[in-house]
Design a binder for these strands. Structure first.
Lengths: 199, 199, 199, 199
DNA sequence: CACTAAACGAGACGGTACGTCTCGTCTTCTG
DNA sequence: CAGAAGACGAGACGTACCGTCTCGTTTAGTG
């Protein structure tokens, strides 16, 4: 398939995403205005809509780039690996938390993205797929630890990871409590140690 | 303090919240229009804004009323009590999930509310306070179980409840996975049983 | 007929009119807000509406009081008498001109009063009656001058006074040109001297 | 200068002004609602506000178009020319008089326009400029008559025209008296003949 | 080099909701 | 009853976005 017509200006993507990121982080989701992005980027609105079909898509793209690659590593020490991985997730969330001037404790932008995923089926599919991949990796990590005997044999991995990741999101979005290294370690401890007393 | 002037019509709150709830659940956050609520409720917009300073505030009030009284009970069986309580939370979330057109897997409305809390400092304070109360109750439940020996003595209650509630929110908002009774039971089991093998 | 119940507080009228005048002159007709007048006067809106059925009526009352009594005097010198009288009218108009911060050249408040008279039949009747009285006096003045031979015998008094008063209003409302003593004298001269060359 | 961007739809101006004129004449100034104009013209409110920054501006534009071209002609007979020209002005005023419900004697709409000119500096400038042009033409007409000896050599043209036009406005806005051909002729006679008896 | 196809800048446009601002009416309690 | 206080209905206003459209202009590749 031969490309016809004038090729897209690749610098546009870069410039737009940079400026959109600045706006999003500085003023929050509402403050991210298509008109303003276009103007600041010296780009026509048409050009934006040629690349991202709606503001929500642009916002998702911006955040996706901010989160980047949360690598997962398996050192054989499940506790350390989980702490390590969860900390990366926490870092991404904390970055969102700063968005929107007031820098209140709650990460409104994360909420907006959830809403965006609900508004647009394609965004929903995309983000769920990405989260599914992340989940798969984490579950594999846990499974490996189970197989090699670090975790108990009849472990239910799915809710375990839900608990870990969920606690982070819960604090960031709902209670507004801090999510730092100390908390992550408490969290992993709480999740891995037995809680019920042995009868 | 003596009340001065014409007292507020208490029926208005009732009527408005009922209609707003219907709109919110049927058409989602965007479909909840102040003008329409006012019209359907036979109320002037001024009257709405006298009670709720912005649409966000109305929406939060609507949802607060839908969640309403998630009573927590202490039967002496911490596992059953937690399952019971989490199911109530899950029910509330699932109700939100249905909100808005496509009945997609993700509860966009919850995300909007998180965003609303971030946009308005007062909403943020209010909701965090409410969640803090809920947390307090749950932590007391857990603490009581610890004291009477159902849970281990050195239990860290805070992350434990974060894990439980967080997992529900995480699935509803992020992964889109179902949150039903079966899952809640798996979740509580996962959180309460020991996961690390004894060395 | 015996008066029953609490008698009206006569101080209210005074206070309200004073404050309304201040607002009207300072901010113009739009800036004259019933709510604000009530608040500043320490008076309930009910009380205002008991006295003046609408904002327009209050405004008219305010202006009527500002104009007060344009006395007309007959010294036997029609030119001087007219100049004298027109100057009083001009003074009233110039007072209105200052109204509304921008102190532009045009007296918007006069226009608003005209509009008010058109909106409310009763205001229209009232003001037209007042203007009719003024007219009657002026016409009598002119007529007397005619009878005693100062003015020509077949003079048409009605358009003559229309011309004089009208020119003032025209400049104040339409062209924005100044209306001072010098102009009034030119005006009277122009109206009284013959303009057509004698054939 | 190259035109950039999508050109304005010229039909919009036409349609909007037509419909706005209909509303203004039928229901008066208050009855001229931006929302309704937009709806009836099949045009977005945004489009209206792009052309006229406020309702006042639209109203002025509507009236300006109604008045349109009051051509002035110089036949060499100053009396006839003045009558002719004043009649055109009177016609415009009488058209305004009909505007708004009660078809009362006073042209409230003219008052509203005066008020509009006072509220917005730009409208004031614009309308004063237009009236200045009209004045210039009329003064030229009078001046020509003076030069050719129809009017006396030391005539003061400015107050003369003020008197003529002013009388019309005065009757329409203030006294509510009729302004028809007969009156215009009396008016011109009154203004042109000598009024003082020769001493 | 002409021609085609698409990207691009600019900005008008339709649509829609928001939140604000008055006005004039009403309802309650107090003197 | 008058008055203070303030809720209420009604309705327009002007604003702020979004996403689409319609131009004219540029930038490639192709015959």
């Amino acid at each position: 398939m031969v490309p016809r017509g004038r090729p897209r200006d690749t610098q546009v993507d870069e410039r737009v995403l940079r400026i959109a990121a600045a706006l999003l982080l500085e003023r929050g989701y509402t403050g991210l205005s298509i008109d303003e992005v276009a103007e600041q980027a010296g780009v026509a609105k048409t050009t934006l809509y040629r690349r991202w079909p709606a503001k929500d898509h642009l916002a998702v793209a911006v955040v996706a780039r901010l989160q980047a690659d949360d690598e997962i590593t398996d050192t054989g020490d499940i506790r350390a690996d989980l702490v390590n991985y969860l900390e990366k997730i926490a870092a991404g969330l904390n970055r969102m938390r700063a968005a929107g001037h007031r820098e209140g404790p709650s990460a409104g932008t994360v909420g907006e993205l959830v809403a965006a995923a609900a508004r647009h089926e394609d965004i929903g599919r995309l983000t769920r797929k990405q989260y599914a991949e992340r989940n798969t990796l984490a579950l594999a990590l846990i499974e490996a630890a189970r197989v090699r005997g670090e975790l108990r044999a009849d472990l239910d991995a799915e809710p375990l990871f839900d608990q870990l990741a969920g606690a982070l999101y819960y604090r960031v979005m709902i209670t507004g409590a801090p999510v730092d290294r100390a908390y992550v370690e408490r969290l992993v401890s709480s999740a891995l140690e037995r809680n019920l007393t042995c009868p």
